[in-house]
Simulated scan of single mutants.
Amino acid sequence: MPEVVDQVALARLYGEPLFALPTDLYIPPDALEVFLEAFEGPLDLLLYLIRKQNFNILDIPMAAVTRQYLVYVDEIRTRNLELAAEYLLMAAMLIEIKSRMLLPPKKTAEGDEAEDPRAELVRRLLEYEQMKLAAARLNEVPQLGRDVLRGQVYIEQSLQPRFPEVQLVDLQEAWRDILKRARLVQHHRITREELSVREHMSVVLRKLQGRRFVEFEQLFDVQRGVPVLIVTFIAMLELAKETLIEVTQAEAFAPIYVRLAYSPA
């Protein structure tokens, strides 16, 4: 078996492990640069080296990890000096930890042994790994616009318009309006007139004949006085009760219209 670190294959060729690069293999100049840019920072690279070789993250072999880490950093320095700055900072930290491990451990004032120099690095790596796994799980959740599209259903509206129902209050307000206008007309001739509700029902039907809609106020003859208005209004109520006419309104507070009731052929 070739001498490689922990017998880890560099690649697999047709299913067979490859422990050393072929001498005649051509690597494009930018190939390594693309690989290095896949890491999101020094902690990501360090975590990759540890997990790739199945090292115990609580007992990191600092010599092997630092050596491999520096190989990557040297490659970065030759291609992107600005990107290498933060990686160099982590390399200095690794070297410092390794040097502290070579020194005899110092006891604290309470007589306890000093904390492992790798403890802070292990804590940062574990926190980073937790955040990275959480981000990966969030990325797997279907996202609107990327994995899921919002369904839209278009329903054709009915061709026949549906008008809101006229409420009793609306009729009362329209009736008060007509009464106010009728009081403005003064008559000095006193006459007695017998009024017929049925006759005025016929008058209303004649006014509506051949017309699609008639405004509510146009059905009243204000000049003839309040008694005629009352009889006309009663006649309209009777017609509506017998479903001979329909009282409609386009929207709230809109003018009220009257039309002949629709009767299918």
Rank of each mutant, 00 (worst) to 15 (best):
Gln53Ser: 09
Gln53His: 06
Asn54Ile: 06
Phe55Asn: 06
Asn56Arg: 13
Ile57Gln: 02
Leu58Gly: 08
Asp59Pro: 06
Ile60Gln: 02
Met62Lys: 03
Ala64Met: 13
Ala64Thr: 09
Thr66Met: 08
Arg67Gly: 03
Gln68His: 11
Gln68Asn: 12
Tyr69Pro: 07
Val71Ser: 05
Val73Met: 13
Val73His: 04
Asp74Trp: 14
Glu75Lys: 07
Arg77Ala: 04
Thr78Gly: 09
Thr78Asp: 10
Arg79Ile: 13
Asn80Ala: 08
Leu83Pro: 02
Ala84Asp: 03
Ala84Lys: 04
Ala85Pro: 04
Ala85Gly: 10
Glu86Gln: 15
Tyr87Val: 07
Tyr87Gln: 04
Tyr87Asn: 04
Leu88Ser: 14
Leu88Phe: 05
Leu88Arg: 08
Leu89Ser: 04
Met90Lys: 08
Ala91Ile: 06
Met93Phe: 02
Leu94Tyr: 01
Ile95Lys: 07
Ile95Ser: 08
Glu96Gly: 08
Ser99His: 01
Ser99Pro: 03
Arg100Trp: 03
Arg100Thr: 01
Arg100Pro: 04
Leu102Val: 14
Pro105Ser: 09
Lys106Trp: 12
Lys107Phe: 14
Lys107Gly: 07
Thr108Arg: 12
Ala109Cys: 15
Glu110Leu: 15
Glu110Lys: 15
Glu110Cys: 15
Gly111Leu: 15
Glu113Ile: 15
Ala114Trp: 14
Ala114Pro: 08
Glu115Met: 15
Glu115His: 15
Pro117Lys: 12
Ala119Phe: 08
Ala119Arg: 14
Glu120Tyr: 11
Glu120His: 14
Leu121Ala: 06
Leu121Phe: 02
Leu121Val: 01
Leu121Gly: 02
Val122Ile: 13
Arg124His: 01
Leu125Trp: 06
Glu127Trp: 10
Glu127Ser: 08
Tyr128Ala: 01
Tyr128Phe: 10
Glu129Ser: 05
Ala134Phe: 05
Arg137Thr: 01
Asn139Val: 00
Asn139Lys: 08
Asn139Glu: 06
Glu140Phe: 00
Gln143Ile: 00
Leu144Ala: 07
Gly145Gln: 10
Gly145Thr: 11
Gly145Lys: 12
Asp147Pro: 00
Val148Leu: 15
Leu149Lys: 12
Leu149Ile: 12
Arg150Thr: 14
